[in-house]
Design a binder for these strands. Structure first.
Lengths: 194, 194
DNA sequence: CTTTGTCAATACGCAGCCGTATGGTTTAAT
DNA sequence: ATTAAACCATACGGCTGCGTATTGACAAAG
């Protein structure tokens, strides 16, 4: 773990600010935003915190930079993974099935959502949420729904996604089997896509 | 705030374990589980922490007791508020509209869900979630759905509820108006209740 | 070879919070 | 009135985590 991180850091000891941000994001995925502590990250990266304060002014600054990087990247990968399909209905279906894939990004998304009460995290997740709801709203409108219905359906869809992630990530002892999961996603598609 | 708490505590200085649990639950609703610190609660109750350790062995013991009390109470109020209706469809509708009421209990529910990674909170929320999903499942089955569909619809319903709560509680700057909220709940009812 | 810039180690101060120890005060019973 | 139990205050030790200051290692540029 700490080995892998240290190795990826560039192999030659010296670290960059980006390395700290990546480590912070990993930490968020594993133990949440509250666990992003500079001493813990330093140990993980194989250095001491004396180094950290050369790259960042404070722990807050690290979190800020990490979130900015994540948000930018999130926008890109989201749009890229959607534009593979042209038909509106296919687009939506693909989006729904995306829930079952890309585990890593979902873990981080979930951890960030659970830390939405943090002053730096909240605004980010609000922006991300609004973007995704808007995207879904467009999709439902293209499928023939009225503007009002499309917006409400988009909210319902997105919020059920958020709830699902938290449930699935947190209560691992109650996880569904693969078949059950597929059945659930299919049910959601049938229920929410007109 | 601290005045109100101290006043409710019995008016004559002396506190009971229950007073600490109530204060802890208030704190959870306002600032989350992580903010349950004995010194902060002591200040809130107008005493010092010297008193706390007479009632509880540790901070963990307080949280444990608080959660037990909450879970018991949650089961009772949930069942009571549902048994007002007899028709299965009315029951379900009432359940959905409940989202817009009883704000206080929803705030705490949301805060607890966001702390589901806490070792004491997680199992509680898992049990609560499973109970509610099961209840919803029964309801959908009574409305004519197949067992498999009823279970999946129950999951979808409950998880959208969880997501909605978090969104609505956390992103207060993006809150819908009352009319918008009503429109959303109506849409959800039309979409999810057969 | 020296200088400058980059990155890291060590050591320290400080704050918040947990838990303990000890002793003081009130209440109720005898 | 005395005693015992319930309740609370004060003071302390310890841990963790943030941030700073100082010094050191090392490479590239001059």
């Amino acid at each position: 773990m700490s080995k892998a991180s240290a190795a990826r850091a560039g192999e030659r000891g010296r670290l960059s600010a980006a390395d700290w941000e990546i480590a912070a994001l990993e930490m968020i995925g594993e133990q949440g935003v509250a666990a992003v502590a500079v001493e813990a990250l330093a140990k993980r990266l194989g250095v001491t915190k004396g180094s950290f304060y050369w790259h960042f002014a404070s722990r807050e600054a690290l979190i800020q930079a990490t979130l900015e990087r994540w948000e930018e990247n999130d926008i890109l990968t989201f749009e890229r993974s959607i534009n593979l399909f042209k038909e509106p209905r296919d687009k939506m279906r693909a989006l729904f099935r995306r829930t079952r894939e890309e585990v890593h990004s979902h873990v981080i998304f979930c951890a960030l959502f659970m830390a939405a009460d943090h002053s730096l995290v909240g605004p980010v997740m609000q922006r991300v949420s609004e973007r995704r709801i808007e995207f879904l709203c467009d999709g439902f409108a293209k499928l023939g729904m009225s503007p009002a219905d499309a917006l409400n359906r988009a909210r319902l869809t997105y919020l059920s996604y958020v709830g699902f992630l938290q449930y699935y990530q947190q209560f691992k002892s109650a996880r569904m089997s693969i078949a059950e999961l597929d059945g659930y996603v299919d049910h959601v598609i049938d229920s929410l896509i007109p």
